[in-house]
Design a protein around this nucleic acid. Structure first.
Lengths: 157, 157
DNA sequence: TTAAAATTGTTAATATATAAACTATACACA
DNA sequence: TGTGTATAGTTTATATATTAACAATTTTAA
């Protein structure tokens, strides 16, 4: 179904670039909504889950990541990390620790609660994301990935 | 460049579905950031521009759209439209009018200021979106559109 | 060594989004 | 006609995101 049909628009799109960009945008929104619904049963959000995933798989030698690293890996503003980590700290999933090498820096670490939670939730997430992407086969997904890489490359200029 | 490289991750992605979904998500975020930067010079946001575009091209016989219609066309919650239209009303771009056919309903209309603004801004937007999508040729864009349609179709189940 | 430039995390203000609950209104059905 | 259900928009609280400005700290360059 075309986006025009899905959004029930009277008039379609004259410029294919505009249509392509809107398709990316709204597909992401649909993915996010579906993910949000999934994570709701775990009482956290997709963004918080992403933080945990980053801490599990991308932690440095200090056993965590700095807020600046998190903001870089999530493509969001540093200011946003503050309240995000506040909420996750409050929920008991992460702690802020000081960095012995740099007094400006916090190292964000998963708590035992956070680790346990993540370990339990990950298989369910894996299952869910596979379900979510059943519209494409493996080869189509790989092609989509490389196409979107091209889009992003074109944005860098 | 792969997402792993862009985000400077130590560890890549084990599940291609996850990688594909993240590519959609982050590409949309990159598009949005670029669009935000563009619209900043016009002192409005991409979401507000989208509202204006919808009012110009999708208005009904009453010369506008209801808030519920806008929320459907934008795939966002009705509650979100309230404050969005508040801000646009405050900026003088739109007005809320009553709907003679249904006393619960507001019809959102562009003001003369809003119409003039949109008419001036649209050609610049067209130019900009073409520039933003230069990573793909026309055929690749059409292929991307149909792939994303498949993703969304798979999400409906 | 010193001063300038860069980086880290926070704060405050703003924008976009969600959910739940509500009132008023409209619709559907018996 | 009356009752139950659905819808429109708002309010409140919460989450995610941006910007600009700031103080503390670190890095860079002269």
């Amino acid at each position: 179904m075309s986006l025009k049909e899905e959004l029930k628009l009277k008039k379609g799109f004259d410029i294919v670039e505009h249509e392509a960009a809107l398709n990316v945008y709204f597909t992401a929104a649909c993915l996010k909504k579906r993910a949000d619904a999934f994570f709701k049963s775990f009482s956290l959000t997709d963004v918080q889950f992403n933080v945990m995933m980053l801490l599990v798989y991308q932690a440095g030698p200090e056993g965590g990541l700095s807020q600046a690293q998190l903001s870089d890996m999530m493509l969001v503003n540093r200011a946003n990390i503050t309240t995000l980590i506040d909420r996750m700290e409050k929920a008991g999933f992460v702690i802020r620790t000081s960095d012995s090498a740099d007094r400006r820096t916090n190292i964000i670490r998963l708590t035992a609660k956070g680790k346990n939670f993540y370990t339990k939730a990950e298989p369910y997430y894996d299952q869910q994301i596979k379900k979510m992407m059943t519209g494409l086969n493996q080869s189509e997904q790989k092609k989509l990935i490389s196409t979107l890489e091209k889009v992003r490359a074109g944005l860098k200029e």
